[in-house]
Amino acid sequence: MSIIHVQDLSKVYRIVEKDPGLAGSFKALFRPRYKDILAVDRISFTIEPGELVGYIGVNGAGKSTTIKMLTGILLPSGGAVRVLERDPYQQRVPNARDIGVVFGQRSQLWWDLPLIESLNFIQRIYEIPPASFKRRLDEFAETLELKALFGTPIRNLSLGQKMRAELAATLIHDPQVVYLDEPTIGLDLLVKERIREFIKAQNRQRNVTVILTTHDLGDIEEICQRVIMIDAGRIIYDGPLSLIKARFGKFREITLETASPIGLFALPTGAEIVQQADQRLTLRFDRTVTTASQVAAAIMNQLEVADFSLAEPDLASIVKQIYSGALHA
């Protein structure tokens, strides 16, 4: 039985268009000119308990809007949402008890007070029984390495520490569904890694259902088995990650810096030149044909390489490719 059920869900934002100046404002007040923005356009999917779903798309694709409808913040303009057999908008309060939400850019913690105060506060709001609250605290002290931070005011935490604290605050009431809207934004690789591990562990141990939006393909690769991709409000892909990667993550780029000006060299098999400068060379290669180390080795045999870096195929370009119909080709 599915835990989240979305059927033909749509959201139209109606905004008032204003001419500049005072006259424009007045006109807008008395005879408003509306413009409709179709942010989410008849999307449907179901999610089973314990699934880890990555929800991706370019800026303005409609991710946050969908999350807001799933969490009961926004009323859908059309279609139906059911989360845990409930309508999240109509039954906002019971729904709120069973879900956790991270808005990556905004904290729910008290800026001036020690972390533990915020957690105590959340215990009161969610009426968490003291015994299970204590158990969860001990657990998070361990898994999120928060033990030393409980007494520190939030304003004194680093970005990464803050996000770990945020996750603890979101999961402490043992929600069944967790929505993470860009939880890794602005974090360094090490912190990202730790947060990914934590989310996976929570899912393994408690069967928490996770819906994650991100612009970092690494998050998706590490955490999610399933990806839902949205563009201009429409779902354009819903399926396992492996399938996308096989088809569209096929090409990678390697950039090499050489110690001396680049002379003549033979192109490694499966690679092509994207850009070539005096001491800098960017190649694109097909992952199904060759590997990064093969390409790098082939070049290093011929040129004196000082440094090289590997670029992931970026999400936006994949989305573009899929949207232009490449997936079905």
Partner: peptide, 13 residues
């Protein structure tokens, strides 16, 4: 405007 109001709406009070 900063979006903090959304937090109130996902709390059970």
């Amino acid at each position: 405007r900063p979006g903090g109001f959304d937090r109130f709406l996902v709390r059970p009070i």
